[in-house]
Write a protein that binds this DNA or RNA. Structure first.
Length: 647
RNA sequence: GCCGGUGUAGCUCAGUCGGUAGAGCAUCGCAUUCGUAAUGCGCAGGUCGGCGGUUCGAAUCCGUCCACCGGCACCA
């Protein structure tokens, strides 16, 4: 007698042992067909798993999160089987589930080509049609190693060698294909079908660039075709909000071959950039910062003192002048900042000194890392260095965190995560100092009751850090601000302050960035809003247009009134139909289109149309100004739906 | 940096088998003076990413370099 308890609390009796699948059958044929696996007493098992004693059972189908993972995992196996059929000389390695899909890494002399992908997909479909049963078997470790070696699967043998000796090895067989796998898997290949292979890539064995490169194929898989289609549609939508595309469409910036990783800002893009700086500058001033500026090119000696020459050399642009002096373009602002701190004597009464700088830094990023505005070689940081006493350190950290979070809120990012990164392998300073810094920084976050993720070994070479990670409208994470505490640079530069007792002490130095790279933040904003920037950020906030030449003077007058009121306005007096002008300006994602015909001129009004197509009717110019000013002041978006894209 | 792919007019893209290039939109000109997402007609626009090679002849084939795209590695 076996008693199986189901999630709804009901239970079923069986005379003898039953499989998960049989239990499903006893409930209904529809469920039996949909069954992919089971969860027995909290543990995932195959549908063929036999229950021989009382247990709690949950049937897993494509509707469950676990079911979806199973589908993806089994589709990865399906792909591997197809690849082995078509390219028998290929070795399989690993094939995990990832967000929205899976990948599988193959070892092969000849790389895959896009045409191969189509063939592999076709072969996968064939295997699905064959509806091959998937079965599990357990093998001894040595036997398994021998088994895979015999088949020329060296990588599998290496993977097994790394599995702890006490762990049971399971193999999954589907027809002619056998793979080492923890499982569970779907019962037969016929359960799959809604998949697509998406990307081809090289990937290092075990993720280490010193190892050989494998051929990775990415794919996506879903319980049904409809969900697959939905996913592919979402990918398309995401492409539309690509900031590189928007940058061209909205005439914000350009890139050029001669300057890889460097931005050419067009008037509209630069207006946006300056708007960000204005905003940050204002917030910093209110928070007690002063603003400074330090040189871009400084002597090698300075970088030797700071440790950059030893720790960061391969990322630095250098230049040599005729007199043989070696200079470096600053990859960070901190050494210049300390140099400035050291000018003249500092008293404990001066501290904390909060020194901000919109410094343009230059980092020689690997060519393959460059990506639009998101990863460039020359970028502007909204950087600051705070010099304070050890006693002030925690309070200063807290203020930085508060300021950062408040600023992100103003940009509409409410979902912000903190990551704590501690000492990296390559670093300066002794362990006692690091202990002190790490615990102080951690204390500041804990004291604020904030939660954080832990990022071991990811700190800066001079100190531990907190990273601020923003989640955008389509769920992607972006690291923006950072906060780092540092005793090392003050030490290396021998920075001091006069204490109340008349002695000398080292200040603590906090490094912090708010938006991080302004270039990158611009890109994030563009993608977050699909280019529909909120009024306060839009480079051109309104375009005033006439219907016929008769209103040209009036339009110019209205535009200048709006400009007087501090708005960014353009006119469109072209001899074109109003529908044509509206279409063009809408595609430019201008927030407000203001139209004057004879009616408006007569009434001294202006007709107002919003970017999303809403007609606000005619209103007096003063009323419009009041309205726009209010919208700028509260940093509102015209319409939150616009974030979803409006094309 | 590594693997794969791509590079043709300002933009988006077509170009067969190697026979010195084509569309739409935009620009410009003319006509039109018009009421909320495209008025009509016309002109002009290209070192086919750079360099080298094969060939009677190269956008097309080969080599090499550069940039970009998708990943990997990197992101102090």
């Amino acid at each position: 007698m076996v008693q199986i308890t189901l999630p709804d609390g009901s239970s079923k009796q069986f005379d003898q042992s039953v499989t998960v699948h049989q239990v499903a059958e006893s409930i209904g044929p529809g469920l039996a067909k949909a069954t992919l696996a089971g969860e027995v007493d909290g543990k995932l098992v195959d549908a063929s798993y036999r229950l021989d004693r009382d247990a709690r059972l949950r049937i897993i189908t494509g509707r469950d999160e676990e079911g979806l993972e199973l589908i993806r995992h089994s589709t990865a196996h399906l792909m591997a089987q197809a690849v082995k059929r078509l390219f028998p000389d290929t070795q399989v390695t690993i094939g995990p589930v990832i967000e929205n899909g899976f990948y599988y890494d193959f070892a092969r002399d000849e790389p895959f080509h896009p045409e191969d992908i189509e063939r592999i997909e076709k072969e996968m479909e064939r295997i699905v049609a064959e509806d091959i049963p998937v079965s599990r078997e357990v093998m001894e470790r040595d036997e398994a190693i021998r088994f895979f070696r015999d088949q020329g699967e060296e990588y599998k043998a290496r993977i097994i060698a790394d599995i702890p000796a006490d762990e049971q090895l399971s193999l999954y067989r589907q027809g002619d294909f056998i793979d080492l796998c923890r499982g569970p898997h779907i019962p037969s290949t016929g359960k799959l079908g809604a998949f697509k292979l998406t990307k081809l890539a090289g990937a290092y064995w075990r993720g280490d660039s010193r190892n050989e490169m494998l051929q990775r194929i990415y794919g996506t898989a879903w319980p049904d075709k409809k969900q697959l289609k939905g996913y592919l549609k979402r990918l398309e939508e995401a492409e539309k909000r690509d900031h590189r595309r928007l940058g061209r469409q909205l005439e914000l910036f350009q890139f050029q071959e001669e300057a890889p990783g460097a931005v050419f800002w067009h008037p509209r893009g630069w207006t946006l950039f300056l708007t960000l700086i204005d905003y940050v500058r204002k917030r910093q001033r209110q928070a007690g910062y002063v603003e400074v500026n330090t040189p871009d090119v400084m002597d090698r000696g300075l970088w030797e003192i700071s440790g950059h020459w030893q720790n960061y050399r391969e990322n630095m642009f250098t230049t040599q002048t005729e007199d043989e002096r070696v200079f470096a373009l600053k990859p960070m602002n901190c050494p210049g900042s300390v140099a400035m701190y050291k000018q003249g004597l500092k008293s404990y009464r001066d501290l904390p000194i909060r020194m901000a700088e919109f410094g343009k830094v230059h980092r020689y990023e690997p060519s393959g890392a460059l990506h639009g505005l998101m990863r460039v070689r020359h970028f502007t940081q909204d950087d600051a260095h705070i010099y304070c006493t050890e006693e002030q350190m925690e309070a200063e950290c807290r203020k930085v965190i508060e300021l950062n979070l408040s600023v992100y809120r103003d940009f509409g990012f409410d979902d912000v995560k903190l990551k704590f990164a501690d000492r990296p392998e390559s670093r300066i300073g002794d362990d006692a100092t690091w202990d002190k810094l790490e615990s102080a920084l951690k204390g500041a976050i804990d004291g604020m009751g904030l939660s954080y993720d832990y990022n071991p070994g990811e700190g800066a070479f001079y100190g531990p850090k907190i990273e601020f990670v923003l989640r955008d409208a389509i769920g992607r994470d972006w690291q923006c601000g950072t906060l780092q505490v540092d005793l090392n640079l003050p030490e290396r530069f021998d920075a001091t302050y006069r204490t109340a007792e008349g002695g000398e002490k080292r200040p603590v130095m906090l490094h912090r960035a708010l938006l991080g790279s302004l270039e990158r933040f611009t890109g994030i904003l563009l993608e977050h809003h699909s280019g529909n920037l909120p009024l306060w950020l839009a480079p051109v906030q309104a375009v005033v247009m006439n219907i016929t030449d008769a209103q040209a003077d009036y339009v110019a007058r209205v535009a200048s009134e709006l400009e007087q009121a501090g708005l960014r306005v353009e006119t469109d007096l072209r001899n074109e139909k109003i529908g044509y002008k509206i279409r063009g300006r809408t595609l430019e994602k201008i927030p407000y289109l203001l139209i004057a015909g004879d009616r408006e001129v007569e009434a001294g009004q202006i007709a107002v149309r919003r970017r999303d197509g809403t007609d606000l009717g005619a209103m007096a110019v003063d009323d419009l100004i009041e309205r726009l000013r209010a919208e700028v002041a509260n940093r509102g978006t015209i319409d939150d739906n616009e974030r979803q894209g409006n094309e």
